[in-house]
Computed example of a mutant assay.
Amino acid sequence: MPGMAMRNWSSRKPLRAAPFFLPSRSMTGRLSRFRPMRKTSSTGFSAPLRRSRPPHAIMMGRRAVRVAKPRAAHHIPPMRFSAFLPCLCLAVLPAFGAQAASSGWHHVEGGSIRVVTSGRPDAAGHLRGALEIRLKPGWKTYWLDPGASGVPPTFAAAVGAKEAAVEIGFPAPRRFDDGYAPWAGYDHPVSLALTLALPDGAAAPARLQASVFLGVCETICIPVQATLSFDPGAGTDDPEHAAVVEGAFAALPEPARPGFSARVVEVVDGAVVVEAALPEGARALDLFVAGTQTLALGAPERAADGSRTLFRVPLSTHLPARAAGEELAYTLVTDAGAVSGRLKLP
């Protein structure tokens, strides 16, 4: 497929919708700034917990705990992680729509999400769709690898007890700095392109369940976990759904090609050095590189070297020997457009 279409967050096992979410050690820092949620009788955790409390404090049980005061309205204050905080703060809500090729909307404080599909599965059982994320003004969400202060979107789907393989395509992101750490994502409504490979015997499923997990941020961050249900065989010719899906795929970066791509030059001094090949007259604006399950990366930095366009990508962890030959997804953004591809480590 065009652009960057990747399995969810490298080889990580997709998250399942559940009343509680226990993060891995690598994600605890990313969840440390999420706010607790109020539990309602009908929908589970559905809204941010609001109590009278001192400014710049969060409620931990019945006690107010002060956290760092942000330096500006758009800054997100870091907080010390509590082992049970994610269990209190997930916005978990099944969104069961009508029998249609899109799910119902799942609403949270910062916006709404739904799954949309269009057309019927092809001969190989592949179905095109989109995860539509409508953000309210001032809110943001994350890219494939948001950096140290975010959570990448994950998407898992199943037809009955059979899992459907899913690839997510991401538009070119922007880089943000909340005063805590730089991160990559989007500050506007965005649709992520989905390619679902339906399991054998499920070419025309009656209903499909999707488990979605992502984060949305303003001056606070809210993790969103939802179960979205829809029928890919219903309303396959809906023009609204077709426009959403086509728009998601049209927004993807083009595949890297000779003369417009990136490659690893060397790994030296705790960083991966990447050289960008650009079309004549084009100017590189940014490079986004996704880490893996075993390799964490910092934000790329421009490196001056005569006429060459070089980026230095810091390694947040020591490069393990087993990382040799591993491939890293990247998106190269220029004033002439964006391309995506894979960087192979030496």
Rank of each mutant, 00 (worst) to 15 (best):
R175S: 07
R175C: 03
R175I: 03
R175K: 05
F176W: 03
F176V: 12
F176M: 05
F176E: 03
F176R: 03
D178Y: 06
D178T: 15
D178G: 12
G179P: 00
Y180T: 15
Y180P: 01
P182I: 12
P182A: 13
P182E: 10
W183G: 09
A184R: 15
A184Q: 11
A184P: 06
A184V: 10
G185T: 11
G185H: 12
G185I: 11
D187E: 09
H188Y: 06
H188M: 06
H188F: 07
V190E: 00
V190D: 00
S191I: 02
S191M: 03
S191W: 01
S191P: 00
S191L: 04
L192S: 03
L192R: 07
L192M: 08
A193Y: 00
A193W: 00
A193E: 04
A193C: 05
L194P: 00
L194Q: 04
L194E: 02
T195E: 08
T195I: 11
L196Q: 01
A197V: 06
A197G: 07
A197Q: 15
L198Y: 06
L198D: 01
L198W: 06
D200R: 10
D200C: 00
G201F: 05
G201S: 02
G201C: 05
A203H: 12
A203M: 06
A203D: 15
A203P: 05
A204I: 00
A204L: 15
A204V: 06
P205I: 01
P205K: 07
P205L: 07
P205Y: 05
A206F: 09
A206H: 13
A206S: 10
A206E: 14
R207L: 08
R207N: 05
L208S: 13
L208M: 15
L208Q: 11
Q209P: 00
Q209Y: 02
Q209N: 07
Q209D: 14
Q209A: 13
